[in-house]
Lab assay of single mutants.
Amino acid sequence: SRSVIRSIIKSSKLNIDHKDYLLDLLNDVKGSKDLKEFHKMLTAILA
């Protein structure tokens, strides 16, 4: 869910600018399909 993804971003080791950017992107995501794609992208970034 959106709140879980937000929590993953906030607890990541990324610097604050990257976190803010990803949180802004997350706010722009519409629909469950796009949310799944965003989660895939985030997982790849944090891997």
Results as ranks from 00 to 15, higher is better:
S1D: 13
S1P: 11
S1N: 12
S1E: 13
S1G: 05
R2A: 12
R2Q: 07
S3C: 07
S3Y: 08
S3D: 15
V4F: 06
I5E: 02
I5C: 03
S7A: 08
S7N: 14
S7D: 14
S7E: 15
S7C: 06
I8H: 03
I8D: 03
I8Y: 03
I8S: 04
I8N: 03
I9W: 01
I9N: 00
I9P: 02
I9V: 04
I9D: 00
I9F: 03
I9M: 01
K10T: 13
S11A: 13
S11R: 10
S11N: 14
S11F: 09
S11M: 07
S12H: 02
S12K: 01
S12Q: 01
S12M: 06
S12F: 04
L14E: 00
L14H: 00
L14G: 02
L14W: 02
L14K: 01
L14P: 00
N15D: 10
I16R: 14
I16Q: 15
I16E: 15
I16H: 12
I16T: 13
D17P: 08
H18G: 04
H18I: 15
K19T: 04
K19R: 05
D20S: 14
D20R: 15
D20K: 13
Y21P: 01
L22E: 00
L22D: 00
L22Y: 04
L22S: 00
L23V: 04
D24W: 11
D24S: 15
L25D: 01
L25K: 11
L26T: 01
L26H: 01
L26Y: 04
L26R: 02
D28M: 11
D28Q: 12
V29Q: 06
V29D: 02
V29R: 04
K30S: 07
K30P: 04
G31T: 14
G31K: 07
G31S: 14
S32Q: 08
K33Q: 07
K33I: 07
K33L: 07
D34K: 11
D34S: 12
D34P: 10
L35G: 01
L35Y: 04
L35A: 03
L35F: 05
K36E: 14
K36S: 08
E37C: 05
F38H: 01
F38R: 01
F38S: 00
F38L: 03
H39Y: 14
H39F: 14
H39P: 01
H39K: 12
H39I: 12
K40T: 07
K40Q: 10
K40C: 05
M41R: 07
L42I: 12
L42Q: 00
L42T: 02
L42G: 00
L42S: 00
T43S: 10
T43V: 13
A44N: 11
A44G: 10
A44S: 13
I45A: 06
A47D: 11
A47I: 10
A47T: 11
